[in-house]
Simulated scan of single mutants.
Amino acid sequence: MVLEGLKAVLGRFRGRVRIVGQALDATEAQALVTTLDPDVVVADVRLRGSMSGLDLCRRLIEADPGRKVVLLSAYDDEQYLFQAMRAGAAGYLLKSVSGEELVRQLELVADGGKVVDPTMAGRAVASAARLQAGEFWPGAHLSLTQRESEVLGYLVAGLSNRAIAARLVLGEETIKSHVRAIFRKLEVNDRAGAVATALREGIFR
């Protein structure tokens, strides 16, 4: 649905942008990019399969440092933006962006620019300053978002996903998604590994 919606939006601007290929997962996308060599790659942060859009971006940039990748996300969290920039992305835009604005930003990237969703730009600058000064939540230096840091704290305390969901007033599936992101960022495979890393890094004591 997201892919079809994006195609429909971009389809209204045929004189300014042309879709040369599409893929549903990172592996397929990587192969297509190699074959088609597009001017700009637009990728969702969340992709089907084991690789995220951030993982795809890193691989594309490693293969071709000049590759231009714009990430689309539903998350207006500055930490996701910082991760995208560290991965080498040329842009980070929210899915709430209008069609006209999306095309304008893609044109800027095609011309060599870097773009950040306007609604996030000011907050991102402020957060970067706070991060530099060490005024942030536990685990920020490991790219954990504030919510992921909260969830990790409850993992250290031994709470189940259901219990964490109740504490944070969130759905259990949302908590599972945060836990998977924590595992990926801490490069561990299970809760025990996440807890061990948190204690070793001094995130929680």
Results as ranks from 00 to 15, higher is better:
S177V: 09
Y80I: 01
D190I: 05
L94Y: 09
T145G: 10
S96P: 00
V97F: 06
Y80R: 05
L93V: 03
V20S: 11
E201N: 02
G21N: 07
R67F: 02
H141F: 02
G88A: 08
L199N: 02
A84R: 08
G66P: 02
V188P: 02
E62S: 09
F136N: 12
T197A: 13
F136G: 14
G112S: 03
V109T: 07
L56Q: 07
A163G: 08
K7P: 00
L32M: 13
G15D: 15
T119C: 01
K114P: 00
Q83P: 00
R12Y: 06
Q22A: 14
G202R: 12
V45A: 11
L199R: 15
L142F: 12
N189A: 15
Q83K: 12
R191L: 08
A165I: 03
A140L: 01
Q132G: 01
K7V: 14
T119S: 15
L93W: 06
V2D: 11
F204H: 06
A192Y: 00
E4N: 12
Q22Y: 02
A124F: 03
F183N: 11
M120G: 10
D111W: 03
E150S: 06
L6W: 09
R130S: 14
L106D: 08
R104W: 06
A194Y: 07
L10I: 04
V20A: 13
Q30L: 11
G99D: 05
G139N: 03
R162M: 09
S98E: 12
R123Q: 13
A31V: 12
L170D: 05
D76F: 01
P65D: 04
I203K: 06
A140V: 01
T27K: 07
L144A: 04
R67Q: 15
L108G: 08
D111H: 12
A87F: 02
D44T: 04
F136W: 08
K114R: 15
L6A: 13
A26I: 06
L36E: 10
L36K: 12
L159G: 01
A133N: 08
R200A: 14
V17F: 10
S177T: 13
P65G: 02
S50L: 08
K95G: 03
G21S: 09
F13G: 05
R104A: 15
Q79V: 12
R205I: 01
W137L: 04
